[in-house]
Write a protein that binds this DNA or RNA. Sequence first.
DNA 1: CGCTTACTGGTAAGCGCTTACAGGTCGGGG
DNA 2: CCCCGACCTGTAAGCGCTTACCAGTAAGCG
Lengths: 362, 362
Amino acid sequence: MTETKRPKGTLTIYDVARLAGVSIASVSRVLNGQGTPRPETRERVMHAVRELSFVPDGAARALSNGLKEVVGVVFRRGGEATFEDEDESLLFIDGINRGIEVAAQHRGFDVLISSVGVHDSHATARISGVAGKADGIILHDRMLSAVGIARLAEMIPIVTLAGSPTRASVNVGCDNDSGMRALVNHLTVEHGYRHLAYLSGHAASPDNRARARVFEAATTAVGAEIQTGPAWQGNYSAAGGAQVIASLLERGGDLPRAIVCANDQTALGVIHALARRGVRVPDDVAVTGFDDVPVARHLHPSLTTIRQPIEQMGATAFDVLYSRISGNGGESDVVLPVRLVLRESCGCPPASPATPALGVGA
Amino acid sequence: MTETKRPKGTLTIYDVARLAGVSIASVSRVLNGQGTPRPETRERVMHAVRELSFVPDGAARALSNGLKEVVGVVFRRGGEATFEDEDESLLFIDGINRGIEVAAQHRGFDVLISSVGVHDSHATARISGVAGKADGIILHDRMLSAVGIARLAEMIPIVTLAGSPTRASVNVGCDNDSGMRALVNHLTVEHGYRHLAYLSGHAASPDNRARARVFEAATTAVGAEIQTGPAWQGNYSAAGGAQVIASLLERGGDLPRAIVCANDQTALGVIHALARRGVRVPDDVAVTGFDDVPVARHLHPSLTTIRQPIEQMGATAFDVLYSRISGNGGESDVVLPVRLVLRESCGCPPASPATPALGVGA
DNA sequence: CGCTTACTGGTAAGCGCTTACAGGTCGGGG
DNA sequence: CCCCGACCTGTAAGCGCTTACCAGTAAGCG
């Protein structure tokens, strides 16, 4: 018991074994619940472990088992060194990551997060770094080209989020089509708006492209007019949305009756910019979002949007990846359903105050 | 060149060496930029690496080097299985984590995220799990008791965020005192409000306690009246803030002239709840936050709050941890400065529309 | 009471990588 | 023309842990 435990110098299973007077194999067995150790053995080991505050080394474990119990997640960040104001467009990503993390915990996995700056040329290197430290990786939108994915997929299972399917990876996304269709239908048919615009997200984003395409198809199908062009190019951020409105108004162009934003963040910026200039939402211009991030309901006016099952997308991405990691073969792409959430910003009446719609699950 | 590469079965440095016709030592040296390989050797190795899309195994590397290049981050999550509406209180935490992550990248580290449910009894186990997979860990508020920290700190360097300092760990926090003092001063002296209340956060949170304490001291110092008691107990979430207002109003109690919320999320819920009931902010009741999360500026009215350098706190936490990991000794606790950010919710006039205050970094 | 059966616990072989050390090659000086 | 040093490169040990395999022990049975 008078073991001199070195305050530095890593503590290993050997130290525990010595203290407990058993072999390292027994320590390992007790720690992992393998075999059937005698109660006494178990007791001695546990005692030594507590005594030393021993925590087994994950790297050694991983090397031995061939399983790190880590999934990597890689996504794009706004700027590089600049902190302020840049990172407001990440609500959605954070939500997804949370879903991944919760699902991962159920399997004893942890999540290794790595973001890549917008113009970071080391993206591939960074992804490789994560790949080496994980059993599988989840790539958010716009991280790697199809061939890049294919290459990497030879080393490690990959799941993409809102990306384009590859034969080497699985994609998890949501049903942009029916969401956008429901939204346009609501605005044109139920509210009767005849003049709309789509404020787009990143041009390269598959989600954005799908939404834009369906927006155009659906509006023209009902004979509504739309504004388009580079002036309506946003970037998924609030600043981007506000910027579009600012230039538009400065140029003295007239606003459409309804602005369909590529995501909630953009809508947030748009509503804010309009309010600043005295344009009333939804009376003068209706605004809608996409995603239904948690703050959407707290805006003024509260935001009509398409609810994506954000955390569930993350959880699904993990589950699919996990089944690939454990070898249970090839699930195919997953498309999750979305739902139109009507609030005030489209022109619908406010919910009754009696139902605060706050913190009350379903 | 007609190597049969097994699509399964891990690819190792041996495979690369064989393909390149060199030894594994050379491969390792090329990959890590050690030694001075002949250009030709380097070329052959790089070619083989690309050919195979080889990514070295992080676990093996870590085992060999004694460095995983991973920091763990652990924090509390809202609910366990329930997804909806629960996780809105994490804006602040996400911001910090982002800061950690960016700082970590500069050192080639990645961030291992793990959350613990509010009532999760496995907290310690979960933290140990992360500890085994990382070189050091950062603990958010309320994760572990002082003695728990002390024990774990024998195995691995620890930094706490907004926690209480221990001799075994370093704490990084922000200057709650001067922030709250500035806020109370602004409300009482400049706006002349004489009747305030503090809507608290988690009772156990050191930040919350500090803010509550200073709030009381500062208000009584200027002779203002305050409402207190269990009715004003929130939990850092929007739902919690809304709930407090709801009960208060139902009970027919009268509202103070200004409500100082423990954080921005709470303020968000409060503003929303007041608006639903027709109480005007700031005309009838002023509301303030704490943190200055990105959405604070987009609220209606925009939120007066105390800006914490959120991402910088994360970055600082990492830097401190890193210096402990690399053995460069014991920095001591860090307290970062905060700043009063005046917007509309306290009764100040709106900023001029000409300065949209959007996306324009300082 | 001796032998079989059922367990428990220990020994040692790797997991993939880094790196100290030794061996081989080549060029230049004596 | 031979020897030495400078440089590369290869061999092998070891990082901490899991686990197959075997030895030792105790209980069960004839």
